[in-house]
């Protein structure tokens, strides 16, 4: 079953950034320079938070602009990155109007959500969670 990450209820987000930390922790890092999910205030904490994460689009714009075929569509929505093919042009990040493709400046490669759900495991207030792609259609 194909799953994707979703903002279940952004009003439940307390801005703890545990999702961001969890994502970089997968590769043994404390911080968020490898994180494919971001949380920031919606222009001041009183307005609440914005959760920026890959929506796993059907027909994803990021894949369409990839000149080398490094980003290919995942069955059911979203993309899979083949890093070997990626030349680091950054077109994918520009094409994502959600701003959900982040940049690894160390390696000059995009940071693309792998839909693993590690971030959601640490969201104790259930602001984000994994959902089945089909259930949303």
């Amino acid at each position: 079953m194909t799953k994707k990450l979703a903002a279940l209820d952004v009003n439940k987000c307390i801005g703890c950034m545990e999702c961001m930390f969890a994502c970089s922790r997968r590769v043994g890092r404390g911080g968020f320079d490898k994180s494919a999910v971001r949380v920031r205030s919606a222009g001041g904490i009183e307005r609440g938070f914005v959760i920026v994460a890959c929506r796993a689009c059907e027909n994803p714009p990021c894949a369409k602009v990839c000149p080398t075929g490094a980003l290919r569509e995942r069955k059911g929505g979203g993309v899979i990155l083949n890093e070997d093919k990626c030349i680091g042009c950054g077109f994918c990040a520009q094409a994502c109007i959600m701003g959900a493709i982040f940049w690894d400046s160390e390696r000059n490669k995009p940071i693309v959500c792998k839909y693993c759900g590690e971030c959601a495991n640490y969201c104790v207030h259930n602001a984000i969670g994994m959902v089945e792609v089909k259930a949303e259609a």
Binding site: I14, C16, F21, I45, G48, Y122, H125
Partner: peptide
């Protein structure tokens, strides 16, 4: 009460 928020890296809020 309108919102509960937390410090960075604290799940308590």
């Amino acid at each position: 009460l309108s919102r509960r928020v937390s410090c960075a890296h604290c799940p308590v809020g």
